[in-house]
Each structure stands twice: as C-alpha cells, then as structure tokens.
Design a protein around this nucleic acid. Sequence first.
RNA 1: GCGGAUGGCCGGAUGACCGCGUGCGCAACAGGGUCCGCAAGGAAACCGGGGCGUGCGAGGAAAGUCCGGACUCCAUGAAGCAACGGUGCCGGGUAACGCCCGGCCGGGGCAACCCGAGGGAAAGCGCCACAGAAAAGAAACCGCCUGCGGGCGGGGGUUCGGGCCUCGGCCCGGCCUUCGCCUCGCAGGCAAGGGUGAAACGGUGGGGCAAGAGCCCACCGCGGACCUGGCAACAGGGACGGCACGGCAAGCCCCACCGGGAGCAAUGCCGAAUAGGGGCCUCGCGCGGGGCAGGCCGGGCAACCGGCCGCCGCAGGGACGCUUCAGCCCGAGAGGCCCGGGUUGGCAGCUGGAUCCCGUCCGCAAGGGCGGGGGCAGAGGAAUGGUCAUCGGGGGGCCUCGCGCAGGCAGGCCCCUGCACAGAAUCCGGCUUACAGGCCAUCCGCGCAA
Length: 172
Amino acid sequence: MTPPVAPATDPRDRTPGTQPAVSVCPTPGPPLQIEVLARRPDFLRAAQARRQGMPGFLLQARQRHPDEKVPAEVIRVGFTCSRKLGNAVARNRAKRRLREVARAVLPLAGRPGWDYVLVGRPGATAERRFADLLADLTRALSQIHASPAPRDKPRAPGAGGPARDPAKDHRR
RNA sequence: GCGGAUGGCCGGAUGACCGCGUGCGCAACAGGGUCCGCAAGGAAACCGGGGCGUGCGAGGAAAGUCCGGACUCCAUGAAGCAACGGUGCCGGGUAACGCCCGGCCGGGGCAACCCGAGGGAAAGCGCCACAGAAAAGAAACCGCCUGCGGGCGGGGGUUCGGGCCUCGGCCCGGCCUUCGCCUCGCAGGCAAGGGUGAAACGGUGGGGCAAGAGCCCACCGCGGACCUGGCAACAGGGACGGCACGGCAAGCCCCACCGGGAGCAAUGCCGAAUAGGGGCCUCGCGCGGGGCAGGCCGGGCAACCGGCCGCCGCAGGGACGCUUCAGCCCGAGAGGCCCGGGUUGGCAGCUGGAUCCCGUCCGCAAGGGCGGGGGCAGAGGAAUGGUCAUCGGGGGGCCUCGCGCAGGCAGGCCCCUGCACAGAAUCCGGCUUACAGGCCAUCCGCGCAA
C-alpha cells in the first residue's frame, strides 16, 4: 500500500556496477541489516512475485507487506540450488558464490523491506566469471525494481522501457 | 632395467584482501525484561544481539545406506510351539557382525599370489533346455550274437523221379545236411562299438564268451570298518566290498545357529493463545455398571426384542501369531489435589568414542593386557568459504640434438588448463562403490652389467 521506506538511507552518490565490489565496506551509516531467509513459505511467496533471469542466475524479488513482523529496514535474501545443479559439492559451491555476490551488491543496490531469492543455474553459476556475476546482480536489481507490480502484468519481462537507474530512486 | 603380485600412505603448497560457524577472554556503548524510584534515572547482571582479541573448523571414502552395535521410545514377563527373515568348510578375534585373521578343500597362474553363497542330494517333492534311442527304479535307435522260418549261391550225400548213354557213369530236378550272403520276419540274449550332450549307470589292457558284460584278473578311480596325525575342517594309510552312490539345494525343502519393532524428524524439556482431557487420594459399593448360564413377564406368526429377578456364581474385556503359567490394568458417581495433549518456535540430546599415538609383554596373525601421552568441527535453507597471485601438477608445440641402436630420457622456451572422486548432519565397527596424479616397503618372473 505504502511505498518502501527508503529515505533513511544515506544519499551519498554510489554508482553500483562500475566498480567491482572489492572496496565495498558496509559503512554503518544507515541501520541496514541483511538476514537470510529460512522458511519455506517465504521462498514460495518470493517465487510468485517478480522474477528476472540473468546468465548466471535467476533473481526473484518481493516487497514485503508492512503487516509482516519483520522490521522494515532489513533486506532478506535466500538462495536456491536444486539438484539440477549437480551433486552436493556443486550445489554448495554455487550457493557460496551466490552468497558472496549478494554480500557485495545488496548493501549498495538492494532495497530495505524486500525479500530476494537467487536461484542457481546449472553450470553457469559455478563457471561464470565473478565480476560478471556482480554486474548481473546489479543489473537485475535495477530492472526488477523498475518493473511494475506483478498483479498488473504477471510475466513482465522488464523490456517495456529503459531500465531506470536505481540510484535515482535513492536520491529522490 | 622391464613386466607383475601384495601391503601401507598422500591426495596440492604458500601468501594477500574480504567473509562464515563455534569455544574462550576483554571492554562494557546501545536494546528487551526484572527490581528500586513519583520521575529523570539507578542497580544486579537475567535474556538475545553486536564490537575487539585469540584458538579451532570436512573425508579416505564424509558417498551408497548394505550389514553389525551403542543410545532412545514402544510392546507385562517367562517358557514352549509355529510363522517369517538372515547366516552356512573349520578354528580363533570381537560389544557384535554377513567383518577380520589363521588354516582346510577345489580352481587359476611358470611364480609371487589370486578366486570360490564351500552344510545336507540313502528325509521327501520337483527339474535336467537343445541334441540324443535313452536324462535316472534304467531303457535299447543303429548295431553284435543265437535259434527257427523264407529267398539266393556253393559243397557233400541219396535206397527218389526224368533224360542221355560207349552200360562204367554223366546231367537236370526233388529230398537230407552243411557253409556263406541277405532282402526279410519271428523269438531270445547283449550293451562292447557308433553318434548326441554340460552330464550317458566307472577307465585302460588282458582273459572269457554265441556275442557280451566287474563275469573274472592287473593297474587306476570309487565306497570303506578301522588305524595314525590334527582342537577341528581335513590329510595319510587301509582289511574289505566289487561298481552299488549322475547333476541342480542361487526350485521347494531338511539340519544347525542367530534375530521383538521403530528410529536423533528417536526422545526429553521450556514459553504463549485456545481447547477442555488425564492421573492420584478419599467416600461409596446402597445398588450402579458390564457380561453370561438360568427363570419369569410383555410384544411378535417367527427369528428375536424389551423389562424384571437371580447373582457376585466372577466370569468378561485389554495387552506383537498360538498355548501354558505368573502377575497387571479397565469398567459407575461425588469431592479434593496435581498434571497436561496437538501446532509453531526455542533448548537439550550433540559429541570422550568398544577412541587415536608411542612403548612394552602375550599371540604366526586378527587382536588382547599394562604403562604413558594427545584430544580443539558440531551446522541446522545447513558454517568450515569467495576472489586473486606465485610455486607445484597435467596436456600440446618448438629447440638443444646433450645421452641412447631404438622406443625414449634430460635440459631450455612458448601456449593451454583450477586440476580426481567427492561435503560431516546422533555416534561407532565393517562392507561396497567412485577416484587425476604420486610415494614407500616386501616379494615373484625375465633380461643386462659386474
């Protein structure tokens, strides 16, 4: 009903995607917390909301309802690597890389009050260059934030117009 | 040196930046609850989270989940029987095993060594494809032999008939007998030979016989009372027997031994809203409850139904299949006290184990005794990592052509490649399966040099 509570973030100019996340430090300006999804219903709800495919993974995202008990300033993220990824070693490796990508990108490009789920792809998630994965997630976040709500168009591919820079949303 | 056998071990290393889980220590800023206070606030340090420092943090298979246990809950206990499942040469090891060690037997290999579900086929049933005559109380397709009968041919005899005649005989036919062949039939004997098969009711040689056959003999094989060695499986010898005993038990089965079921999502505990259950004690068994044999009354054509009495006679019900024994519980109300089910979340279980290493003693060994020492993964959408650099590894090409008869080896340069199988989930003992590359030890065969 209400837009996400974003103005608490520091309006410092950050351009995510241009620079690899090596120098990213979670500067403790805003009380931005990242938690890990643990409940199966959370995963199911995220999968039924917005989704954005990328070469290295599939991103699912959902803006939480304000009635939920989770504090509004937290970003929650979950990881799904099914048996299609391979055996346990391959699944764990893909999940670790996705977790590392999320740790680098989400404090910059993620929005508080949202749940994100990163789904691994067979082969690509484990083999794609790490810098490309970082760029993939940045682009996917900006596109998924710009796409309309899934209630209007259930399968919005995000190609209706030019993707808006998520940094503009932060400034506004 | 080449080829092989067995046993054991490793299964990348170092560094940089950024992270994760957990134990300990420190500082106490901020938060929640508690207590004190009218309040600001303070106190103790309860709870959860964060900060800094520091220690530790996947495997030989963590895998498959195939066996055996520990542990937990469920089932009243004991004995017997039955059913079901498992194991199966012998001895030992072990908490236990289908595991391990040592040995036996059979098979393979020149050898080191390897492989084997390896109890019972005179308890019984069943099966033995194809081929073959026949696949299990033996039988007989071709075949061999004997007798009889028939056919053909040869020899011999003739007191028979006919013909010729040199009157001595000769020829033809018949009959009798004998031999051979057979094309055959009948009756009987045989199982050597042929051929089939994974397997054919012993093998070879000789005697014997009508032909044959353990019918007899020699050797071999087989069975085997008994003797010797060994704890035993078994091995060696063997009177005697005289061929009698085909194979399959991974078809059923028999025998011996073992086995209750479910599993850490076991199980226990804590908190909250809701629902309203259970346990114990006391009173009371008036007469209530339940069941059954019997009697009476009523209804109904009847099967039967309902009620009452009798009566505690105490049967009845519950408890993995059955039986027996021992014991237990239940049923009906009132009062009091106490506890708590399911769902979700959290905590415990949770890592010290039949443990590992070293020494010593016993043992061929598996292993065991004693002494000393080490002990630091415990996650829970699941930590133990992400990115990168250098070295190492692997693959390819070129050069030196240094060494070698050669396959090739050595050195240098360049390029490519993150690089075996694979991720703890209660914990142990095993098995099985997967695995790039590499190391060590012992042994066997062949070759070379000395």
